[in-house]
Design a protein around this nucleic acid. Structure first.
Lengths: 192, 192
DNA sequence: TGTACATCAGTGAACGCGCGTTCACTGATGTAC
DNA sequence: TGTACATCAGTGAACGCGCGTTCACTGATGTAC
């Protein structure tokens, strides 16, 4: 291995990418440093050339997870800059999203962990939620602004709740029924 | 300490009660056996007179958490046997519930952990969710049965999602706004 | 009723394993002359 | 261009701590006579 700056940066990004997935899959303390480095094709010791501590990585991976998800959402619609309600809902409530926790919405995967985590993560998450609410409000073009905001909140909560519940349920038909019911509801909010 | 059966059973229940709260507060692997026993007023070693393993306790505490919550819900309304939508929603989306993860809805607290846990827990949780959906459907007395079921699903998802999000948010006004918006929406579903 | 013995919930030290972190070392790349 | 040296990403063994589990022991209660 070389030690040019770009090489190091690539390695860094690989570690963060692996962590970003695994943390969503197994929770914020669901994977160890050694295993993580192995999955990134490296060995334990090198970790501390990139991060001051495991917590440091978690914070960075969390940020990266929000970015990954945002990017995936934008690429899921016909118009990347402005994803329609229909596209957003079909993507969010798809069986693929339900079955790919590691590549999915960080809130749905980590709500419990986020609620318990430190100020830094909480502030980041709060900003992200605010942004999500504004995007959702934009998808609900209504005459009454106040009602639009309220519907946006309900939609965001219902979507996240639906994925959370659908992932718990040990019964495929019921799990799909939940995704579909919320899909129908939320899609209607986009039609006016 | 004596060793009569009732004494042992009381101790057992104390341990489970402490675990039931702490697991919801800190996640399924958020508390250690020693700390748990200390909070129950005991010492480590005695743990294995009651449980075969930590996993064994977690399973029992999970079951107990569902029971605790169910009991709390039934005691929150005017009529314990049949809690109205208004009572249910006001209880579920209260600041008290948001701020008392340990005494609150196990799904909202542990959705991530439950999705990752074993068959036993998943099956238990699935049964619980089915029951919750039926109760919610009963609260939404509609002419159209199919619409009632769908609205029940949306309501359950929105409630759970709202608490999850409200707990993450680091900004009291926004957190309350979310609870209130979903409260208004869900309460309306109960009025027909 | 009183006495001797058995039971077993609870004690607390000890064990072993896994995990985060440290550290001396390697060897490929970059720089100086 | 070629050579000697410096840098530093990555290695992998080792350390220390915490946690789940085990175990020999205690002492209060229950039972037998």
């Amino acid at each position: 291995m070389g030690h040019s700056q770009t090489d190091k940066q690539k390695t860094h990004e690989t570690i963060v990418a692996v962590a970003s997935r695994r943390l969503r899959e197994r929770g914020l303390d669901g994977i160890g440093v050694a295993e993580l480095m192995k999955e990134a094709g490296l060995t334990v010791g090198g970790f501390y050339k990139h991060f001051a501590s495991r917590d440091d990585l978690v914070a960075e991976a969390m940020q990266s997870a929000f970015g990954d998800w945002e990017r995936k959402v934008r690429s899921s619609g016909v118009n990347p800059a402005d994803v329609s309600m229909r596209d957003y809902v079909n993507n969010y409530l798809s069986a693929e999203h339900r079955d790919d926790t590691g590549g999915g919405c960080p809130f749905a995967a980590l709500s419990g962990d986020l609620a318990r985590s430190g100020t830094e993560c909480r502030e980041l998450a709060t900003r992200q939620i605010s942004a999500n609410l504004e995007d959702m409000t934009a998808r609900i073009a209504r005459d009454d602004q106040k009602a639009g905001r309220q519907n946006a909140i309900v939609a965001v909560c219902a979507l996240m709740g639906a994925i959370g519940i659908a992932r718990i349920i040990d019964d495929e038909p019921l799990s799909s029924e939940i995704l579909d019911a919320v899909k129908t509801f939320a899609t209607q909010l986009g039609e006016n």
